[in-house]
């Protein structure tokens, strides 16, 4: 290290390498990623948030919610199973085919009480030839993928978060702390806007012993007059007063309700929990996505920010 030039050269090499890896490469790999399709459907994912929720994202940013709440769900792995959904017309042929996979499955009681979990497998590609072999004899089977992990068990998400989930958020707020619960899917678990408004005003009324600070400055407190406000929240311990949410509070609640990462993707597959007795053979995931509280036109609408 005899001169400033050597130092600058060393610093330049080190910094340009990390710049290429963590600034340039993500831009090349993710920056222009097109919308994906939710697995098994034609629904594009993700969709841009509705207007009020978009304003709510600004409130979320401005209040620094990210310093206590993360928005990223992790998983430790997936449980993948092959499920027999239909026995086919010829039970003995089906049983013979199943016996080839595993001799214990050759028993007649395998075909009783369908759908039935046949076997755990490593991943979806391993399941495909098995499902094909079963389909070849006229029966039907499908793979069920269940992500596992602490976050999933806490009900914070159906699957891990992936980069695609954040494609239309600016700024992204993945967060690095969980002094409050993860919010990546709070719209799935708590879909009621009024619940969020009451919770923002007085968290302890909705969750006993909550450590979250109340956000009373997002509300206006009036004496209840002759004409009560239609938006007012009612609290038993404040008789005679009405608590009216401001625009910011309504936008924030709309944003929280819009937080949901519930589309199965190629890089993060999952199958929604099977109902006890499914009445249809269609993949369950399709039902799940179709039951989103969006209208069909909203789902097909291309997002505004596509630059």
């Amino acid at each position: 290290m005899k001169s400033a030039a050597t130092i600058f050269l060393a610093a330049f090499l080190a910094l340009s390498a990390s710049w290429a890896a963590f600034v340039l490469a993500p831009q090349l790999q993710l920056g222009r990623e097109p919308q994906a399709k939710a697995t098994g459907t034609d629904n594009l994912y993700p969709v841009a948030r509705p207007g009020l929720a978009k304003q709510g994202a600004e409130v979320y940013r401005s209040l620094g919610c990210v310093y206590c709440h993360s928005q990223q769900v992790g998983q430790e792995g997936v449980k993948c199973e092959v499920i027999l959904t239909e026995a086919g017309t010829n039970a003995s042929v089906t049983l013979a085919a199943l016996a080839k996979l595993n001799t214990e499955l050759g028993q007649p009681q395998t075909l009783a009480a369908l759908p039935k979990v046949l076997m755990p497998v490593a991943d979806v590609p391993t399941a495909v030839p098995i499902i094909k072999a079963i389909a070849a004899v006229g029966a039907k089977a499908e793979a069920r993928v269940t992500p596992v992990g602490a976050d999933i068990s806490r009900g914070w998400g159906l699957r891990r978060s992936v980069a695609q989930d954040y494609a239309y958020d600016s700024p992204v707020q993945p967060g690095t702390r969980r002094f409050g619960p993860d919010l990546a899917n709070v719209g799935l678990t708590k879909p009621d806007v009024n619940w969020h408004l009451r919770h923002l005003y007085a968290p302890a009324t909705e969750i006993k012993g909550s450590t979250m600070p109340p956000y009373r400055f997002l509300f206006e407190k009036h004496k209840r007059g002759a004409k009560p406000s239609p938006d007012a929240l009612q609290f038993a311990d404040e008789p005679g007063f009405e608590i009216v949410p401001t625009d910011d509070a309504r936008a924030l609640a709309a944003y929280l309700v819009s937080l949901r990462a519930d589309a199965p993707l190629v890089e993060a597959p999952f199958t929604a929990p099977t109902p006890a007795a499914p009445s249809t053979n269609a993949p369950v995931a399709t039902n799940r996505v179709a039951s989103l509280p969006y209208t069909a036109s909203e789902l097909l609408k291309l997002p505004e920010s596509s630059k």
Binding site: S18, W19, P26, Q27, S170, P171, V172
Partner: peptide, 25 residues
């Protein structure tokens, strides 16, 4: 680092998780 991050996060924001990668970098 400061100009990279300011330009790519605030002046010409990159998309999605690329922002998080730049901010973490």
């Amino acid at each position: 680092i400061f100009s990279s991050a300011t330009l790519l996060l605030q002046c010409f924001p990159v998309r999605g998780m690329t922002q998080a990668a730049v901010a973490w970098w």
